[in-house]
């Protein structure tokens, strides 16, 4: 598992920023007139779209697959969750930023856990 501070901090920053941004975008796109499945789907697409746009910046700074995979998962999940939330209520900005960021950190920690299990194994 990665132990260098620069890359650990980069992983956290990438996922937290991506989660917050995807959450904000999904909630801005979806309003309470939408059905929850439609909000979730639109949020997922918006999250993945913004993920693809921002990902090259994080990849260039912090790593390839190590950044790409958790960041894209974060973007997709934060978009889904806050797209769904946007269909139920109008989330306030601090909730979007903190919630999206928290999703990003959670995805990152889960990815680290899977990596710890798979690391060094053969295929």
């Amino acid at each position: 598992m990665e132990r260098r501070l620069y890359f650990l901090a980069g992983d956290m920053l990438s996922n937290a920023v991506m989660g917050a941004f995807a959450a904000w975008l999904a909630a801005a796109l979806v309003d309470p007139t939408w059905s929850m499945p439609a909000g979730m789907f639109a949020g997922m697409l918006a999250g993945m779209g913004v993920g693809l746009l921002l990902m090259p910046v994080f990849v260039g700074l912090f790593g390839a697959m190590e950044v790409m995979l958790p960041v894209m998962l974060t973007a997709m999940l934060a978009g889904m969750v806050f797209g769904m939330a946007g269909a139920m209520l109008a989330p306030v900005l601090p909730m979007l930023l903190l919630g999206g960021g928290a999703i990003g950190i959670l995805v990152l920690l889960l990815t680290y856990a899977v990596d710890a299990v798979l690391h060094g194994r053969g295929a």
Partner: peptide, 12 residues
């Protein structure tokens, strides 16, 4: 002879 995962089972 050997396969080693560097990151997940993706980078090896």
């Amino acid at each position: 002879r050997q396969v080693n995962n560097v990151y997940l089972d993706v980078v090896k």
